[in-house]
Nucleic acid binder design. Structure first.
Lengths: 254, 254
DNA sequence: ACAAAAGTGTTTCTACTACACCCATGG
DNA sequence: CCATGGGTGTAGTAGAAACACTTTTGT
């Protein structure tokens, strides 16, 4: 917190350091998740510039100092980069800070770059488009990334992605996060499939129903019903997300 | 993540920006907690330099680029600043990243400064000493801060402290964090008083005992007994922290 | 003996699991 | 009619709360 207290008297270097010399580049990276084709997927771009040319990477970019009076908010930077690199902007259901990755060697370039990583949930609707420096943007199943290309992600993005996935899995238990993966009006089955997809486990439909209905503020009845599926079955009630952000008792994974 | 992709083509400013212009200062701040005099306390320093001269603040300082080949690890910077400003170094039981605070106006000075905040647990043993630029360092009860001086903390340290306290309270439920506040060998009563102090609630001694003993890997029996207190009572068994980091089932707060 | 703190046992209640069963629709 | 998915009911079990009770010390 103290730029003016550097350099301290016990400086270890001969060089005459000024505050300017301690400045670093600050980037943001976003792990944006969605559920498509019944799979838990994350948005990746294929890098169009070195380093890590043609590697897959999380969308992101520098926090810019030429936006606003004193530079932009990191969260704004995340939204801006998402828009610039992938065309996704509307319908972003959720965004929270995940953590900051600041090891000196995480970026091989001359300049040191630290990255504030964000965890987000995107719309199932829009298709991402490769744009600007990102030669290609696409949603990719997290299982497939883990199995096939986890060693081919740029920078420390494999670590960031791992942390983001764990955050998502943990948050489903005690928060209403799962509703962000659903349509504006959704059935309890749709909500259950979110849990099943992200946790990779099957849940008892009856028990799940009772649990989410017992959690105060989780679901609001819309009074409408979904149309019955082509394969038959009783039409399900449609709900919308309630106002609560945490749920008691939590939905446990085993 | 892309210094070389700045400045982008859709730059909004007339100014000819180079990568250098987007660099900012990165600080670390540490919310270091302990339990003293049966109170939940946090380490504060009294600032000896502007801005916020004579305000209380969390210890912290700049991540330096003149340490190591490419600058230091943020976590190392946190430990170094803690040592420089307060003299505390040994016996730090725990340190984890809390989050990054990067609003453009969080620091009133010319240079923009973002701060990576850390959550730590310190020793009950050592006394902090005011040092270098910090004119005074002391542990202060969090209740007292909230009641008396929360509006007089430097920068956004009130917000950071609030988040850190909430992190501590939440982590007690599902992690073995509480043992870090205890002596190397401790009684179940001592552990219970950690929960009671941090949660500000009374727990049933008998039920607490059964819960922590049922949680696998939470406690290890040392085979020793504490000496009975002066006020009488059966001597308690002494335990040490087990190897588990999370506990099932969790210890719930109501 | 009494007070005080450690530790155990017991009863009651809540919440979860597993699974049976009924409901409403399409074919 | 049957198949399919939505939704409810129920018995058994695990964990938690409340609190009585026993154990081991100091005074």
């Amino acid at each position: 917190m103290e730029p003016s207290e550097s350099p301290p008297l016990d400086m270890q270097s001969d060089k005459n350091w000024s505050v300017e010399d301690h400045k670093v580049l600050v980037a943001v990276d976003i792990a944006l998740f969605t559920i498509r084709d019944s799979k838990f997927q994350v948005l990746l771009i294929k890098r169009g510039i070195p380093p890590f040319l043609d590697f897959w990477a999380l969308p992101g970019g520098l926090v810019r100092m030429d936006i606003g009076l004193r530079g932009e908010e990191p969260e704004e930077a995340a939204l801006r980069e998402l828009r610039e690199e992938t065309g996704l902007s509307k319908g972003l259901g959720y965004l929270e800070q995940l953590g900051t990755y600041g090891s000196p060697n995480r970026d091989p370039r001359e300049q040191r770059v630290i990255s504030i990583a964000y965890f987000g949930i995107g719309p199932t609707l829009e298709d991402p488009i490769g744009d600007s420096d990102a030669s290609h943007a696409t949603f990719m199943p997290v299982d497939q990334i883990a199995a096939e290309i986890s060693s081919q992600l740029a920078f420390d993005h494999n670590e960031i992605l791992f942390d983001a996935i764990e955050r998502a899995r943990a948050k489903l238990e005690y928060s209403t996060l799962a509703t962000k993966f659903c349509s504006p009006a959704f059935t309890i089955s749709e909500l259950r499939s979110v849990y099943e997809t992200i946790w990779g486990a099957n849940l008892d439909p009856g028990n799940f129903q009772k649990k989410v209905l017992a959690a105060d503020g989780f679901l609001e009845d819309t009074g409408q019903k979904a149309e019955a599926s082509a394969t038959g079955g009783r039409p399900a009630k449609l709900y919308r997300a309630g106002t609560a952000s945490s749920i008691t008792p939590p939905i446990r994974r085993n």
